[in-house]
Design a protein around this nucleic acid. Structure first.
Lengths: 155, 155
DNA sequence: CTGCCTGCAAACTCTTTGCACGAAT
DNA sequence: ATTCGTGCAAAGAGTTTGCAGGCAG
């Protein structure tokens, strides 16, 4: 299988910033890209350590901003205390998040109108829009039936 | 001037939950309702103490959930570390927040389509929508011209 | 007198940072 | 050599909680 193109993107970003491509940064990058769902810093640390067990929590936290600034990852804050991250797909930033109120599972769904709306609203206020995010809180089917989610983590 | 109707709403909520209407809770409530802009827990503490100087930080944090659950306040998390609160106006929950990337000032603007969109999107996923929130990050005019906001707090 | 409510301070969670060592140029 | 990167542990911010005393019903 071929090299993920975003790996090159990340390396190019590091080079452009005068930063080094270290084993730890690559391990964290690879661990991040291997996740199919949203993940936390702690989960990323665990996974990165399976690739390079010298990776520390500090380096994960120092690398996350590099990956978001280079648009390799997106940061998603659902207001649950910890931040979530997800590899940036090619579809861009026009995604809404639907979050289960019980288990905090995050579903993403395309929301192409958001960008237009962000502009409209910002310009009414005399501001220049940078980005916009729509978050919907919802109950999943299982929660409505049983009063709890199958994959609930809390409590 | 007459008593704010939401004061009764709050007292009714407390009664219904079997909770007592204490001086501290009322001081915190009045302090919250007196704010015209979004405020933090710490700002609320300061203001509540001007009404009743026995109010403690712990009681503020214990009272905030009571006010949000009774829909007297809305919680707004812009992902800046601390949570913001705002007295719930009568217009309901169909508001978008436009947040300045530099000073974190929050502008609110009515967004009546959001509720419809929350439903549409949730139902595509087989979920029952509870609430939705659109947040737009933007730069204010001053920031674009001077590279900083007049009322910036950070750094 | 029983139980809710409080302030205080300690604990907690997530994240950031100072420092000295180690690796790359 | 010099600079950058790292792990460790401590610090930091915001929030929550255990506890003993206080006040209300």
């Amino acid at each position: 299988m071929s090299v993920d193109p975003s790996r090159e993107k990340f390396q190019a970003y590091l080079a452009q910033q005068g930063l080094r491509v270290t084993n730890q940064r690559l391990a964290i990058f690879d661990a991040a890209l291997a996740q199919k769902e949203h993940f936390t810093a702690e989960q990323l640390l665990d996974r990165a350590r399976t690739i390079d067990d010298s990776v520390s929590r500090a380096t994960v936290y120092r690398t996350l901003p590099l990956m978001t600034e280079s648009h390799v990852l997106r940061e998603v804050d659902i207001g649950s205390g910890e931040k979530y991250y997800l590899a940036n797909s090619s579809r861009g930033t026009q995604v809404a998040q639907v979050v289960c109120v019980d288990c905090d599972k995050i579903f993403e769904i395309s929301a192409p109108f958001m960008e237009w709306y962000g502009s409209t609203v910002s310009q009414k206020l005399g501001l220049k829009p940078i980005s916009q995010r729509l978050q919907v809180s919802a109950q999943c089917i299982a929660y409505r039936h049983n009063g709890r989610c199958p994959n609930r983590l809390k409590q």
